[in-house]
Design a protein around this nucleic acid. Structure first.
Length: 272
DNA sequence: AACGACGTCAACCGCCAGTAG
DNA sequence: ACTACTGGCGGTTGACGTCGT
């Protein structure tokens, strides 16, 4: 399912993201935003390229990501919009709150494309058999697009206050990230099978063959949902432009070397 | 049980547009 | 006008799971 971790020529990690990498990325982006994806990995302590971090965040880690099977309504909308727009996955995904362009694209290629093709085939065969100008199946699914969703899926206030988030992060202990199944409310882990032998909380199997989720995803998502209701629109979707005065100067400029970076990031004193 | 074919989907790659200098 | 850089997008890959024989 996921790619085996490896490194490229420059030493950047490739392949599947680990729980530890996710933790670092979430912790950094929730605290400082994504002000520059290319520079971000250095400050977040990740041996990943910026593109990889951006993709991981946008497709799997950011708040309000909807997981699980597509509903019939979602599928109908995808088919209808694809008929009108073609492979404009980002535009289509924008009409489906919580779905990513990658997810929509995958679902189209693995499921919907065949279904539409079969419908069309049946339709054309019926047309030939009856010699009547039956409307195509495509026309059945072609209709006016739903109204565009709001420009941002996040509600907004003018407040740009990290206090709530900071206190939450500080209150987290290791169990938040590393909890094992035995401590997790059954509602959260429903349908999931975790490798409790490693005690790292990593989801190793799933009845929808969905990997790369963690036991406490829902907890964290709920928290972030609440957080985004009290912060600015641009926080999640645009380069961070807010007040950076609270960020230790060592983390802003000039860029530290890798070894310098690690000593900075894990020196808790600079945050006080 | 073993094996190959097929399905799924996370992640990578290359290209492009926008922007700053 | 040109170059370098960045984020965004769509196409594609490939590891792993499932199914059928």
């Amino acid at each position: 399912m996921a790619r085996t971790p490896s490194c490229d020529k420059s030493g950047m990690r490739k392949g599947t993201w680990t729980a530890e990498e996710d933790r670092k990325l979430i912790a950094y982006v929730t605290r400082y935003g994504c002000w520059n994806w290319r520079q971000l990995p250095k400050f977040a302590g990740l041996s990943r390229c910026g593109k990889s971090c951006r993709l991981r965040w946008l497709n799997y880690l950011r708040p309000n990501i909807k997981r699980g099977n597509f509903t019939q309504q979602e599928e109908e909308l995808i088919i209808r919009m694809h008929n009108q727009l073609g492979n404009r996955w980002s535009v289509i995904a924008a009409e489906l709150p919580g779905r990513t362009d990658n997810e929509v694209k995958n679902h189209w290629h693995t499921s919907l494309k065949k279904r539409v093709h079969q419908k069309n085939t049946v339709s054309s065969e019926e047309t030939i058999a009856t010699k009547s100008p039956a409307s195509s199946q495509i026309s059945d699914i072609t209709g006016p697009l739903s109204p565009p969703s709001s420009s941002s899926e996040f509600s907004s206030t003018a407040e740009d206050d990290f206090g709530f988030l900071d206190s939450f992060i500080e209150s987290m202990d290791e169990s938040f990230w590393l909890d094992d199944l035995s401590k997790t409310p059954s509602g959260i882990v429903e349908n999931n099978i975790y490798d409790t032998t490693t005690n790292d909380g990593a989801l190793v199997s799933h009845n929808h063959s969905c990997t790369q989720s963690y036991v406490l995803d829902k907890d964290f998502t709920s928290f972030l949902d609440a957080y985004t209701e009290s912060t600015v629109d641009s926080f999640w979707t645009h380069p961070y432009e807010g007040d950076m005065s609270h960020v230790p100067a060592q983390l802003l400029t000039p860029l530290p070397t890798e070894s310098e970076y690690f000593s900075i990031v894990y020196d808790e004193d600079i945050w006080s």
